[in-house]
Design a protein around this nucleic acid. Structure first.
Lengths: 352, 352
DNA sequence: ACAATGTGCTAAATCGTTTTATCTTTGTGC
DNA sequence: GCACAAAGATAAAACGATTTAGCACATTGT
């Protein structure tokens, strides 16, 4: 070996071992215990101010960084969270959830392990195991569409929160306030003066009858119907579709336009609305002069359309942040927490 | 304590300690060393078949899972990778990168730590430190737009790959093959029989002169110009814009349509093309009957438009997968690796 | 003068693995 | 019979932190 003996000098041929707490202690002329206590900032220790200074200086000059594995082994804390989702990270639709979660966990000096299950129960179990093996400090379960999720059994003392979903096994959940979101959409149209010629696009009987297990859509419709009723309004028609892609919005509305001229469309999501734009354009109708449109989600699309689409936003980013906050708050038996859906007003609604 | 002494029975009041290798060994009637060797599947050990059976059985009945921290401490391996990006996880534009990386790392039995830096050098340094502290087995640096990235110094023996970017400090990189992508776009139009009335949308002089440090766009344009030249074609006009959002596509094309009727538009990305669709529709021109369009990226949008947008796809998912593969391959001084951009043909091109 | 109390620090155990070195049997060849 | 090897296992030392218990010395009160 051509290596020098002193550990602080760079070894050319060695693997440049990490500097350890012992190195810091040695340089500071103290024990590792002392160094540990000082660096972790223990409150009630009786070490001298000089000792503090020396240790901090030594750590700085050596560029000391604690070994996370060793610390985890001893303390059972890892400053690491797990974000286990069915499709969030891998699709663009709900990326706000992970964005918010990442932002907040960074603020809390945590890092995030991201695992995707594709909704496969086997992968779900595996993901949970992987997370627990690594002793994460908490787990966020995120669901693509708000829904009831079945989780494998988990040790009771692991902090958990459901994000955009609910589950028997996990009482605390973060959900969009779809009910009031639904009301807000109707309010937008009502306050613009519409009282007739209203059409609902995307209503799905199966969903409303609970055949499809989607908490969120039920509530969205609930809110819409409640607000309509309170204002003594009703839809001229409800165009029903199971699939909420642009294609369907286009077809539904195109067909409808053969015989009718609606004054306002309430689309159940932005992609349906996107299709509606296409159908209206083909029919030579102008938005919002001939037809107004309100919709839900505040997808990327909404801002690209002309005129911009007025829509009730899914507060994904806020939800993601909130999930991390709840997870790190010990008092987290808070049950379900609803996050407001704000109206994003663009140009697709004009006063009647 | 009301706890029973034997560690294998459930303690009602205790914290239900994890089952450890020692527990497994005890149940199997062997030493922890034996249990360790058997469970890690060491090849050259001389333990009896009976011993193997007993240990595996014990592990199974106890539901043993190794403690990752302890193992990491000993072996310096964590089965964990870091994905450090500027904006990938938090935006929808390049989510394919993370999707591919997650898929491949799952296949390789690794998990991924996801960190976002927002392009901030301070956060970049912090992210790297967090990753190294946790002894990740490798780091992927992902850049939103392919570009030259400056990284802080990193210990030399940490496997690294740049994804969608290049960097002096990290020789191995995964990039889209923009040059051939550019050629492919032109080929598509040329083979459809267009030889005049061609317009380039989004050309940016700054970029082409290298003022803006974007490797990828330069190559894309390079490919376009090369293929054009080889076929003795030229653009009637080049509509220039720094910003490639739908808004700009709309404005550029709308203005152009006041005096000209192009036969085919080559848009430098799908969002520009989206704007072009809007402008063409307003001008009463039909796609593809009056005007054909080819573009780049294969954004979500491309499939939503009617007719569907023919576009040269950014192979994000493949790139993500490839990045993980390179990272785990020891032979990874492979330099830059280009991933083919495939043409996705939809309905926006008709033979001239 | 001596117990009691404080002050500043350290030794050593511990977390749960992996790995090296070693130990006891048992069989084998000569 | 005896050396020697092979087989089947184990003890103990890491890995790098945190934490408990306690040591040595100085100060104080009586």
């Amino acid at each position: 070996m051509l290596c020098d003996q002193t550990p602080s000098t760079d070894c050319i041929l060695s693997k440049k071992k990490r500097v350890t707490l012992a190195d810091v202690a040695r340089l500071a002329g103290l024990s590792t215990s002392a160094a540990s206590m000082i660096l972790t900032g223990r409150p009630d220790t009786r070490l001298s101010p000089e000792a503090h200074a020396r240790v901090h200086e030594a750590a700085a000059t050596l560029g000391y960084r604690p070994n996370a594995a060793a610390r985890a082994l001893r303390t059972d804390k890892t400053q690491t969270l797990a974000f286990i989702s069915d499709h969030i990270a891998t699709t663009r639709f709900a990326s706000g959830l992970i964005r918010g979660a990442l932002a907040e966990s960074e603020a809390a000096k945590q890092v995030m392990l991201v695992l995707e299950t594709h909704g496969d129960p086997a992968l779900e179990t595996r993901a949970i195991d992987e997370a627990i093996d690594r002793q994460v400090d908490g787990i966020i379960f995120a669901a693509m569409r708000s829904r009831e999720v079945f989780l494998p059994e988990i040790s009771a003392n692991m902090p958990m929160v459901m994000l955009n979903g609910t589950s028997k096994q996990c009482p605390t959940a973060i959900l969009p306030d779809e009910f009031n979101g639904g009301r807000a959409a109707v309010r937008l149209l009502a306050e613009a003066g519409f009282s007739e010629g209203l059409v609902l696009v995307g209503h799905n009987a199966d969903v409303e009858e609970g055949l499809f297990r989607s908490e969120t859509v039920i509530r969205r419709l609930d809110g819409i119907r409640t607000e309509m009723a309170e204002r003594s309004l009703s839809f001229d028609d409800e165009l029903s579709s199971w699939n909420w892609e642009p294609e369907n919005g286009y077809k539904l509305v195109k067909k409808y336009l053969k015989h009718e001229r609606p004054k306002a469309l309430l689309c159940l999501n932005d992609r349906l609305a996107f299709g509606a734009y296409q159908a209206l354009a083909e029919a030579g109708l102008s938005i919002p002069d001939d037809t107004s449109i309100v919709s839900f989600d505040n997808d990327e699309l909404a801002s690209y359309l002309r005129p911009g689409l007025t829509t009730i936003a899914l507060p994904h980013e806020t939800m993601g942040r909130e999930a991390v906050r709840m997870l790190l708050d010990a008092k987290a038996d808070a049950g379900a927490q609803l996050v407001e859906m704000e109206a994003v007003v663009r140009g697709s609604v004009r006063d009647a």
